[in-house]
Amino acid sequence: MKRRLVTGAYAAFILLGLGWAGWAALSTAGLETIAGGWLGPDATVTSVPRLGQLPWFALMIAVAFYAIWQAVAAQRGMLHRSLRPWVLAAVLCNALWVSFLERDRIGASLAFGIMLLAVLVRVVVMIAKSQLLQQVDRWITRASFGLFTGWLSVIVLVEAVAFCAVSGADSSTLMFKGACALAVLLLALFLCAMSFKNPLGIYLNAGALWVISAIIVDRYTGHANSPAFATVLSVAAVLMCACLFSAVRTRIRALLARRDSQLPPSSQ
């Protein structure tokens, strides 16, 4: 009984934290009014359009679903119990990240965004080192935090670029744009490697690829278009897609081979 109360209270705190973050996001007038507009559309070459921002709401729903899922008696396990303080920390950092951004304090928001990314990386490492017995649990746990971490990695990078612009860096110079392109390309190469080295690498890749693809389309078609920057990001996106499809194919083959090896000889 006591364990059920603890688990239920934990899920309630997660939902409250996600609700706080959702309220802060919905009450924001718009990114165009924050940090001098440096987070708005076409403010810098890395500006994320609305399409790239929308997954945040879906990710909040996914984390909320995970909080409810792990509270079910049959799904409680050592991994989920060890994840609780880290998930709570992630939810708190997420709420503070959005709240400070809503209050036009991009420096504090960036600090909590980096903290959130660090906590999510820790969660991803813990999940990757554990064996999730049920297929449904694998999808829920890995997808919730893997996609969130991949998506956030690009978003934090974009916010760091905006913070540099707010701090006085000239975002129109070739050096600034080149540094941004190099940063995105290095992140893409890292995620390409993770697609094969980590069980959650596929989700990390997919989450980041969504944002990068949205930026590419906007840089080709937006008001402040930058074809050269979009071309560099397109190279990164092609590499990520190739690694993503290859990793998915390798994973499917491994799962099929494992399933066949577990079948009795009479059924093979």
Score class of each variant (00 low, 15 high):
Trp38Cys: 05
Trp38Leu: 08
Leu39Cys: 08
Leu39Met: 10
Leu39His: 07
Asp42Val: 00
Ala43Arg: 07
Thr46Ile: 12
Val48Ala: 01
Pro49Asn: 00
Pro49Gly: 00
Leu51Arg: 11
Gly52Phe: 03
Gly52Asn: 02
Gly52Ala: 00
Leu54His: 06
Leu54Ile: 15
Trp56Ala: 13
Phe57Thr: 14
Ala58Ser: 06
Leu59Lys: 01
Leu59Gly: 01
Leu59Asp: 00
Ala62Lys: 06
Val63Leu: 11
Phe65Thr: 13
Phe65His: 11
Tyr66Asp: 01
Ala67Glu: 06
Ile68Ser: 12
Trp69Tyr: 15
Ala71Gln: 13
Ala71Pro: 10
Ala74Ile: 11
Ala74Gly: 10
Ala74Lys: 15
Ala74Leu: 11
Gln75Asp: 09
Gln75Pro: 09
Arg76Met: 02
Arg76Phe: 05
Arg76His: 07
Leu79Arg: 04
Leu79Lys: 02
His80Ala: 11
Ser82Val: 12
Leu83His: 04
Pro85Tyr: 02
Trp86Glu: 00
Leu88Asp: 10
Ala89Ile: 03
Ala90Phe: 08
Val91Gln: 02
Val91Tyr: 00
Val91Trp: 00
Cys93Asn: 13
Cys93Pro: 08
Asn94Met: 13
Ala95Gly: 10
Ala95Pro: 04
Ala95Asn: 04
Leu96Gln: 06
Val98Pro: 07
Val98Glu: 04
Ser99Asp: 14
Ser99Asn: 11
Phe100Ala: 13
Leu101Gly: 13
Arg103Val: 10
Arg105Lys: 12
Arg105Glu: 15
Ile106Asp: 08
Ile106Lys: 07
Ile106Leu: 15
Ala108Cys: 09
Ser109Asp: 05
Ser109Leu: 01
Ala111Thr: 13
Ala111Asn: 09
Phe112Val: 03
Gly113His: 04
Ile114Lys: 12
Ile114Leu: 15
Met115Tyr: 10
Leu117Asn: 11
Val119Leu: 07
Leu120Gly: 03
Leu120Tyr: 09
Val123Ile: 15
Val123Lys: 02
Val125Pro: 03
Val125Tyr: 05
Met126Lys: 14
Ile127Pro: 00
Ile127Ser: 01
Leu132Ser: 05
Gln134Lys: 14
Gln134Trp: 10
Gln134Ala: 15
Gln134Asp: 13
Gln134Cys: 04
